[in-house]
Design a protein around this nucleic acid. Sequence first.
DNA 1: GCGAATCGTAACTAACTAAGTTACATGAAA
DNA 2: TTTCATGTAACTTAGTTAGTTACGATTCGC
Lengths: 149, 149
Amino acid sequence: MKRNSRLSSTLHILVHMADAPDRALTSEELAGFIHTNPVVVRRTIAGLREAGIVTSSRGHGGGWQLGRAPDRISLAEISAALGETLLPFSTEPESPGCLVEQAVIAVLDDFRLEAERLLIERLSHITLADLTADFRRRYDLIGVSSHAV
Amino acid sequence: MKRNSRLSSTLHILVHMADAPDRALTSEELAGFIHTNPVVVRRTIAGLREAGIVTSSRGHGGGWQLGRAPDRISLAEISAALGETLLPFSTEPESPGCLVEQAVIAVLDDFRLEAERLLIERLSHITLADLTADFRRRYDLIGVSSHAV
DNA sequence: GCGAATCGTAACTAACTAAGTTACATGAAA
DNA sequence: TTTCATGTAACTTAGTTAGTTACGATTCGC
């Protein structure tokens, strides 16, 4: 798994889970989809379990499943559950007392607040169901074109 | 300079430059403002010079000055000149041929395109002059309150 | 109950990124 | 010509995150 691809990798995993709703997928299987290690998968999606997006079960036949229907899981929730900010630029004071820095931070924090609101708003309108629908469309297209050849 | 604070540090530097329009500030001085090394400063704002946001002169009495009036320098330009994306999540394919991944990437890239457009639009309405105005307001407030004590 | 399968998690290692540093060539001014 | 400054390459250091190993806890099938 490359750097900064946790959101993309997690969505990849979740769509595979949505595509096999009748059984639990193991960390091993999920890791295969994104070419990484089962432990990395467990670590990455641990936060999704706490958010109710997925459930996990131990022991023989255990693994991971979606916690609710794909059309009730938004990318905004997934992103939040991953615990990463969309806008990672820092506004930590490094020169406390410098009025120039205070002005800069004030403006940047305002911008960040407004920007995050906008981004989350947009992500909340995209659901896992939209992703699976897009996947199935591609799948059907390939199927048709294979038949045509 | 902390990690992920290049935008904030650069703005800090630029406001100081706007506040001393009559003379060139050396990398050494600028480095002092953000508690780092002169070479780091030169490296960081090299891109701003190419964008015409600042000018640099060598030799005795040399240093850095704004390339044009603060009210004609927007945060959007500065951010772009720094060469960092505001939304650093990756959408590089890691499993070419996987239709699930293709669907995920397509949706994320759409989102990124729209999001970046929005962010840049907003940043283009904030200028260096706004930052210096905010700074001066704070400066005057402190002055008043010092007098009051 | 026993053994196999699976998650949960801690601890460690490896790889990567970005800042910090040193060094020196280039250029401009006194 | 000396001094002060940028430009830039090369290297070092620090911090972050993925990857790995190990092992305990839990669950199912037999």
